[in-house]
Design a protein around this nucleic acid. Sequence first.
DNA 1: GTGTCCCAATTTTTT
DNA 2: ATTGGGACAC
Length: 829
Amino acid sequence: MSTVRLRAACPPPIAVLFSPTMNGDLFDNPATTSDETGGSDSAAYHPLLDGLNTEQRAAVTTTEGPLLVLAGAGSGKTRVITHRIAWLVQECGVEPWRILAVTFSNKAAGEMRERIERLLGGSSASLWLGTFHAIGVRLLRSFGEHVGLNRSFSIYDRDDQLRMIGRVMKAMSVSDKVFNPRAIAGYIDRAKNRCLLPDDPRLPAGGVQERKAAEVYAAYEKEMRIADAVDFGDLLMRPVQLLTKFEHLRASQAERFRYLLVDEFQDTNQAQYALLELLSSHHGNLCVVGDDDQSIYSWRGAEISNILEFPDAHANATVIKLERNYRSTRPILEASTAVVSRNRSRHGKVLWTEQAEGPPIRAHVASDDREEAEWIARTIERLSADIALDEIAVFYRTNAQSRLLEEAMRRFRLPYLVIGGHRFYERAEIKDALAYARLLVNPRDSAGWLRIVNTPRRGIGAKAVEAVNQLAQRQSCSLPEACEAIAAQGRTSGLRGVDKLQLFVALIGRLRDGLTSLRADQAGRMILEHSGLLDALREDGSLEAQGRIENLQELVTAMREHAERADNPTLVGFLEQVALVSDVDALSEKRQSVSLMTMHAAKGLEYDVTFLAGLEEGLVPHGNSAGDVAGLEEECRLLYVAMTRARKKMHLSYALARRRFGGWPEPTVPSPFLSAIPGHLLEGDGLTGRGVGTPGLAGRSGSSGGGGARHGSFGGGLRARIARLDPPVRVDDRGDGTRIEHDADGGAPGTGARVGHDGKGAAQGGDAADANSDAGRSGAISVGGQVVHVTFGRGDVLDVSGSGGLARVTVRFGRVGMKKILARFLRPA
DNA sequence: GTGTCCCAATTTTTT
DNA sequence: ATTGGGACAC
């Protein structure tokens, strides 16, 4: 260990004032070399600065006043933040509860807390550390009544939000054909990101759509108040409103939080920025860390100007640039820099590294999307001999791309983890169960009521729901309240199904009574048993229902884990976590797995080995930003973010043909961004293992010659050549030939079912083709005839609908009974 | 009120 | 390809 000893910048007088543990001799009493576990009051500032470079140290020790840290990718940003917090606590004697640290994701918050606790050698429970949204919730739970919220308010996700918008639009007789509810939800989000209330004159009202959206927004807000619910936008806007409107609250909160730290500042929106300004208004100790080159959330209202103009907005701001990259090998850094350098609107940092040369970037041109997934999985399998799987990640642009990759992972028996994408909590049965929980906690939860009033089926149909809705509109009350009112009226309500409503009201009442002081998992179990959710699934008995039951059991497990861990073990605490945490999969288990995620989700993470899949025009950059310069630049930054995640080895790939919406493969064009990468950094061949001297990504630079582009675009030249080589790649060279297809009944993976694939067969070896050609002759399948299915065996054809390979055939199999199956998975017996 | 068939939309990115 | 909604039949 080095013995460098640094004199700290002078501690803040203000901190002295408010820090009982501070004392005057702090700086005459330097490091007593207490290590990280020595949580004493000794001023161990030396270890905190050890190993940091000059700029990093400055960023850690410049505690007072506004500070902008422009931190390039891999420049030790997280390290600076965690050390800065530890510095504040240990060196400046700031009580942890006076520090507010904001991260971009819950995951980042968790990791940061862990690291801080390691540095401090103790609990950091009193430190406020979380996403803006989590902090918003905390403020609203405490002070929400000032803006008309109960303590038990619900948090609505997009689904609930759309449900409410739909209700409002119906009441207003606004056609959802003419005005897209999703677009209106987007409008409301954007308004809230800018803290614009429905009566704000600054609301956009240019066209008919916008004016109508503004109307719906106003009505929606009323409904949300009635339902005692907030959406994600509210979690930012309401706290701002709270602190703006109520001076005493602003004063007390700004007084409380002495030190504010914000990570990923380039991705803050107006509401978040406003919140920061309000909270730092007392002392101005606002430290923001970010990188304009990594701004990728403008679609969520992020304003890159927040970071670019920070020094202008804060006259006395200190600006520190972190430009030394510690993460990646030189080729990775060079390639990334080359890509992002094409952007015009940027601050302009020069990242450098002292890291040794690394291996070149591996490039792969796949014949189609499946082969790409296959190649990635196969490469990972090979790498897994030397590299831990949790040091490997695959990034892609859209969530839809994960499916092929997942299938490939399963085929190669590689454990994987899909980060984000909401998988578990997006499931209908889970949402149903949670809607019960929410309605129990918040008796006015309209969206929750709407979701479960007839789930499971209990004979409450559109008529009854409409009656309740009408009453709710008339009385300006929530749906559950209106429901109770009608149930109380009994027969006098004149509603035929009123007895069913009464039963439902009684059920909710019983559950709510039973709820008091139960732990989350106990409450969850009670809900599942008594709501009828489980019974309905048990009765169903199908394989699918079985899976749902297992999911619900998993939910109870998650509830138990939460109850054992969290400081609020009740249902309320659990609901909160669920509403805010997206990538629960990642939280629940950290076993050895390959990580799969979108490029957005990759922000802030790093891996030894990475794969970037689907680098094609239309995907990267995404088609929706075509023609929009700012949008294209953001897509470019997104690629930059993804590229800079790799420490040692990066793989880039694209497919020459890709299926969209499950259709046939369509030819693609390589991402124009790739042409920025200098050819000498790349290695690879599009024709794996064939020994054909056709260069892939790298080769196009030297040999394609076309267009004079040295690092040429992946234009026609290469593709034409590849197309002539046939077959380009034999995908299924593993012998067991397990290729899983979704047939009509969603055949389970892992059965080893070997069926033909439905593409053009470009990537397939011959073995798949015979199945294909057989399937093609669906003309031979007719009612009364017999067919054979690879998995289910022989069966009788009961019905045929449609024609060709896409025809749906109802078959009664000897072993498994009735199935509906696409004709192309069958051949005549 | 529920079940079934057909059609349309889905795929940016997330708290 | 899968999903959800709407139209229709029972």
